[in-house]
């Protein structure tokens, strides 16, 4: 069984069925065509999207509904075709596709954000992925991960 080195974990064994093909790569990483999704109980609900070819490249993602429970995915014809999905209906998140957003952990005191403008969408049946830029959506590419409002204690 082939194995790959990972950025956040040890070397792991992979099978063909754990590889996801991104025919266009990701914006900024166009050459990265294969990723593996990893999750661990101790880092729930974070997901790790590890490049199969570049051990140093790993994205941290969150399922979109964890961040935005009413998130609306509107895939145009080009995106549906790219994901090999039927053009007749929008895919159901969690059923037809995995929809997750890339977390920017920032650091240096900056609060973490997620990119709601451009979610990673994966056709679960054919294991094809695409980062879809939802131009008309009005979603932010730097949506604060933690609500800005302070919690008010009950008294």
């Amino acid at each position: 069984m082939p194995s790959i080195r990972t950025k956040c974990f040890q070397e792991i064994d992979i099978t063909d069925s754990s590889l996801f093909h991104f025919p266009c790569g990701l914006p900024g990483f166009e050459q990265e065509r294969y990723f593996v999704f990893l999750n661990r109980p101790d880092s729930h609900p974070l997901m790790f999207m590890q490049s199969a070819h570049t051990p140093e490249l790993c994205f941290v993602l969150l399922p979109v509904f964890t961040v935005a429970p009413r998130y609306r995915l509107a895939l145009d014809e080009e995106a549906l075709t790219g994901l090999q999905l039927p053009l007749t209906a929008q895919p159901k998140i969690g059923q037809d596709v995995l929809c997750a957003v890339i977390v920017c952990a920032q650091g240096n005191g900056e609060p973490p954000t997620v990119n709601l403008l451009a979610p990673v969408v994966v056709n679960l049946h054919d294991r094809i992925g695409l980062q879809v830029i939802q131009t008309q959506s009005g979603y932010s590419h730097r949506h604060p991960l933690v609500a800005q409002e302070e919690l008010v204690p009950c008294s």
């Binding site: 990701l26 990483f29 490249l57 941290v60 890339i102 920017c104």
Partner: peptide, 8 residues
């Protein structure tokens, strides 16, 4: 944004 996220 992807490059910043990967670095983070």
């Amino acid at each position: 944004e992807n490059r910043t996220a990967a670095r983070s």
